[in-house]
Nucleic acid binder design. Structure first.
Length: 283
DNA sequence: TTCCAGGTGCATA
DNA sequence: TATGCACATGGA
């Protein structure tokens, strides 16, 4: 994708491989805010960026250019990925045409772990509220926003703190995982193969197969993962299944068999497509 | 009032 | 190994 870098901004000269709405509203990140039509503020870890639409693309304004160049996966060629996937399946082709500007973000492992523990049996709106509360409660004050808490900061929270924030039955999971991660180098996990990565993640309290897939996908860019949640279950049974399947493990297996090392990309296009369609139908 | 949301953990057979 | 249920909370 065409982009250039100036002092404090990344200039994107493309509107087909980069679309802030598609990128931010496809459920992979919870800390963003819409300013105007296609303008957004996004917070990741302790960094912040603002995105503004221009005539020929977008400008990403930030104090940390390298961080957000990597965050937005700018060196990756999404046209090639989209072409490959579009030929594989008609529904996916439609989903890609719909969410053409999606990119899979490179996010912080610690942020993904706790955010997706919160996501269990929850809706995106409420997940956003809870993640924000967590940052406000114990994350570093950066002036006009709060950084996502470090592990040390997470460990200062009591079980009651978490319950009082509205974490519900996930409070215990967060509390236990914060303890368990002590002394563990999460960067090392990127060197593991998929099986080992998921095995470790599933050993954390509140992390099962679906949440582990999300963490592997969004924190470690592991494209062999295909998180199957309630939405993917719906889309699978609507468009892919010969016969209806409820077993999510089996659905995952079938989808990974079909999309291989492009599974993570395929999943995001399908997830965004299905959710937006359902949202619009309700209106 | 009931159902549902980017599910997980645990008991039971 | 597979199935079923409880688990907080808030919006529709």
């Amino acid at each position: 994708m065409k982009y250039t870098i100036e002092k404090d901004k990344i200039i994107i000269l493309d509107k087909t491989e980069f679309n802030p709405k598609h990128i931010l509203e496809c459920g992979q990140i919870f800390r963003y805010k819409k300013l105007n039509n296609n303008d957004y503020v996004v917070v990741s870890g302790k960094e912040k960026a603002e995105i503004f639409e221009t005539e020929n693309g977008y400008e990403i304004i930030t104090k940390n250019i390298p961080y957000f160049a990597n965050f937005f996966d700018l060196s990756n060629d999404y046209n090639q990925i989209k072409n490959k996937l579009s030929t594989q399946n008609e529904t996916l082709k439609k989903a890609i045409e719909f969410g053409y500007g999606i990119r899979i973000l490179n996010q912080e492992p610690i942020e993904m772990i706790f955010s997706f523990i919160i996501s269990a049996n929850n809706n995106i709106k409420r997940i956003q509220t809870l993640v924000e509360k967590l940052a406000e409660k114990c994350g570093t004050n950066m002036g006009d926003y709060f950084a996502f808490p470090t592990l040390k900061q997470m460990q200062t929270l009591s079980l009651d703190d978490l319950k009082n924030m509205g974490m519900g039955f996930r409070a215990k999971y967060i509390f236990e995982t914060a303890k368990k991660l002590e002394g563990i180098d999460l960067k090392k996990l990127s060197e593991f193969d998929t099986e080992k990565q998921l095995e470790f993640l599933c050993s954390l309290s509140g992390v099962g197969p679906k949440v582990a897939d999300c963490i592997a996908l969004f924190a470690y860019h592991n494209m062999n993962c295909f998180p199957v949640d309630t939405w993917v279950e719906k889309i699978y049974n609507q468009y892919f299944a010969i016969q209806q399947i409820k077993n999510r493990n089996l659905i995952r297996k079938n989808l990974v068999a079909q999309f291989g090392n492009l599974s993570g990309y395929a999943q995001q296009y399908l997830f965004f497509y299905k959710r937006e369609l359902d949202k619009n139908q309700k209106k």
